[in-house]
Each structure stands twice: as structure tokens, then as C-alpha cells.
Amino acid sequence: MRYCSLGSGSRGNATLIEYGRTRLLVDCGFSLRATEQRLAAAGLSPHQLTAILVTHEHSDHIKGVERLAQRYRLPVYMTAGTYLGMGETALPVELIRFGQELVIGEIRVTPVPVPHDAREPCQFIFDSGSHRLGVLTDTGMITPLITEMYSGLDALFLEANYDPLMLANGPYPPFLRARVGGQLGHLSNQQAAGLLEAIDMSALKYVAIAHISEKNNRPELALGELSRVLDGWEGELRLAVQNHGLPWQDITGNTQPHLAHIGSR
């Protein structure tokens, strides 16, 4: 199993998960043309995709979903609330129901409900049968269910959206600061680190920091906070960025301990 990010941040998100001949795209927050270009940079054609999974209806996650799905005849999976939240659309969808796993091609997918200011948001855990990858972004707080579901993973794509001091003193108006930092907003660097402290990390070898705010965070702050709780951990810590995403990460091979440097791609 391997995964990559086509881009992660407030200007667009898309994450690829691949196992065998199954390739799942989680969200598509870029225009059709930009998505095609980013897929090409990852060595793929849209024709090679198996399905699109949507976490929630915010524009930085769904901007290109409808056009990509229609042009390449891709099935789309989302919750009923997300479908309603998208508004008028002729897009046929497969509905996600919490408590029910999906089997898409060679990958078993578990949807996880998360607190976020959307109609019925979810995140996902992907299981190849021998390795498990968790994707967790756009989450306002860590719930007991999240701690339970994201324990025992081999890899984790984890939001560290903001630094509290930068958010408090940044350019956002008060209502937007309250939204981002609230229980239905995003995870701070400290909340992301707290999840790592709370979960079973005995199998965890790969962590990628995702959805970093360009105005309320800095890569070195997120990396520093997570590195602090990963002291002595023998694994790889990476960084997904807005413009270049994150290259393919193979979570099945052997790894040498590595902490990503600032600006890594």
C-alpha cells in the first residue's frame, strides 16, 4: 500500500491511496485541469482511478469532484449529509453509512465520523489486509472514537492546521478565529501531537503532517510539536504542502528513522 498528496491546505486538498490495482482519491479540491496535472505529476491518469471518496462539502475538498467524476465516469462515495450539503448536483453517489465498512476493489474502507462544521463529515481508515492507513483532517477535536479507531495504524496522514498563538494574533477576524479554533474547526499542532500521545503507536511507522494553514501556522512549528512527542520513535515524519503535496509514500517497505526537514517535498 502507498499514498500521496496532490496538495493539502485551504486552497485545495486531494489524497491518493493505492493498493494493487485499486486507486482511491480522497477529495478533489482542485479544478479539473489542475487535478489532471497533479495526477500526471504523480504518474497517473484519471482513467486509472477506481473511485472518489468525499470527506465533506467544503469547496477546498469538492471543487473538482463533479467534473472529474463525470468526465472519467468514476463512482463517488459520500455521506447523505455531504450530498445534501453540496446543493444542486446531478452527480450519482454511493452513500456512506457510519458503522458500515466499504470494500472498494482491494481496499477495505472504514468511515469515521468527525466533529467539523459541515453537514455529515467523515474521515477514513484504509486497510489492505496487511497494512492500515488513517487519514484525519478537518477535525475540530479528538473524540474517544477517533482515539480508538486511529490506534494500531501503520501510517497516519494527520492534520496540524494551526498554531494557537499565530491564530490568536493573525489576520483572521474574530468569528473566523473562533471557527478555526473551535470544536467544529481544525486541529492545532498541540491537538495533533496529543492524538499521537493517546493512540497505540506500536505499529506506526509513517506520519505525514497535513492541512497546514498558510496564515496561522509554519511548517517548523508543526514539525517541532509533533517531533517532541515522537522523541525516540523509529519512523518517518513527513510534511504535505499546498503547492506540491507529498510524493508517494510506500508504507509496506522497510524504513530508516527520518524526521522531515523544513520545506521537504
Rank of each mutant, 00 (worst) to 15 (best):
Tyr77Ala: 03
Leu153Glu: 02
Ala222Ser: 14
Ala198Trp: 02
Gln70His: 11
Thr15Glu: 04
Gly140Trp: 01
Gln70Phe: 12
Ile62Lys: 00
Gln123Lys: 01
Tyr150Cys: 04
Glu220Met: 10
Asp154Lys: 14
Ser59Val: 14
Ile62Tyr: 01
Ser188Cys: 03
Glu120Ile: 14
Leu156Trp: 09
Gln249Gly: 03
Glu18Ile: 04
Ala203Val: 14
Lys205Asn: 01
Arg265Cys: 11
Ala14Asn: 04
Thr137Leu: 06
Ala69Ile: 01
His211Cys: 12
Thr82His: 06
Val93Thr: 09
Leu184Gln: 15
Gln242Asn: 13
Tyr206Asn: 07
Leu49Arg: 02
Tyr77His: 08
Ile107Met: 06
Glu214Thr: 12
Glu57Thr: 08
Pro111Tyr: 12
Met141Lys: 13
Asn13Met: 05
His258Thr: 07
Leu145Arg: 05
Thr79His: 05
Arg23Asp: 05
Leu204Arg: 06
Asn216Ser: 06
Ala34Asn: 06
Leu95Phe: 13
Ile142Thr: 02
Gly235Ser: 00
Val207Met: 01
Thr139Trp: 11
Arg108Gly: 00
Arg179Ser: 14
Glu120Cys: 10
Gly99His: 08
Leu74Phe: 08
Ser5Cys: 07
Leu91Ser: 10
Val26Tyr: 09
Gln70Trp: 10
Pro174Ile: 11
Met201Lys: 09
Gly253Asn: 05
Ile262Lys: 08
Cys28Gln: 01
Ser8Gly: 08
Arg218Asp: 07
Asp138Met: 02
Pro113Trp: 10
Asn13Leu: 05
Thr255Asn: 10
Pro111His: 12
Gln242His: 11
